[in-house]
Design a binder for these strands. Structure first.
Lengths: 112, 112
DNA sequence: AGGCGATACCTTGACAGTCTAAGTATTGAG
DNA sequence: CTCAATACTTAGACTGTCAAGGTATCGCCT
């Protein structure tokens, strides 16, 4: 039971969110999802069926790199870390999102 | 040549944007697209292949109602107007978007 | 022993919504 | 007489999200 419905709105934003999460240092998939949910108090819900494919996608594009390791709890986990190109991508997407959000806010702004 | 790429980010936000546009009074499709582009200085680009299906969708859902009329330039045009349910929907979606945008901004916020 | 919840990853298939691109028709300007 | 702008329609491709299932391990509780 999520705090509020996020629905499909994540569309096109997930990549930037994950990239940003990884900008704080390497993390494994499960931890990325938990971190995003925690820091947004469940406003952003990341489904595994969305997250893992997104991770593979971004790895193929060279934005992130994977390496198997051990989680904090001693289990095997795949750690992802940002590449240089990923950092550029993050910067670009952040800027795009800021502009888009500003535009939408302008339109949706509390009526007269 | 758009000012900036909006890509697919519109996903899940178009409805609210259109609903809001109609909250100022009835408008025909073409005018909705122009208005959104104008007021966001092209930050939001609405393709016809996205807009018209969205309009039909929302009409089916009872959020808007259509009526044929004459445009300002004397051409036949289908005017859409918000229904009561559409107004509620707009309110709900606006609130959802505000929360979502806040959450994303929190994550994407300029780094430490 | 046994079960169960949390951790951690993977995959399939359905689906919705956007986009590109094509088409129709009318009007006014050049 | 042609062309751009206005105005709507539709087909088809694509992409990314989601739901829902699966695997496996670990620690805790009974």
């Amino acid at each position: 039971m999520a705090a509020t419905e996020t629905k499909d709105r994540l569309h096109g934003t997930l990549d930037a969110l994950v990239l940003k999460t990884l900008s704080w240092g390497p993390r494994h998939g499960y931890a990325i999802a938990r971190w995003l949910e925690d820091t947004t108090r469940n406003a952003i819900q990341v489904e595994e069926g969305s997250l893992y494919p997104a991770l593979y996608r971004m790895e193929r594009k060279g934005w992130i790199e994977a390496e198997w390791g051990m989680s904090e709890l001693g289990r095997k986990a795949k750690f992802y870390k940002l590449t240089q190109r990923g950092r550029q991508q993050l910067k670009a997407e952040s800027a795009e999102w800021a502009e888009f959000a500003r535009a939408v806010s302008t339109v949706l702004a509390p009526s007269s």
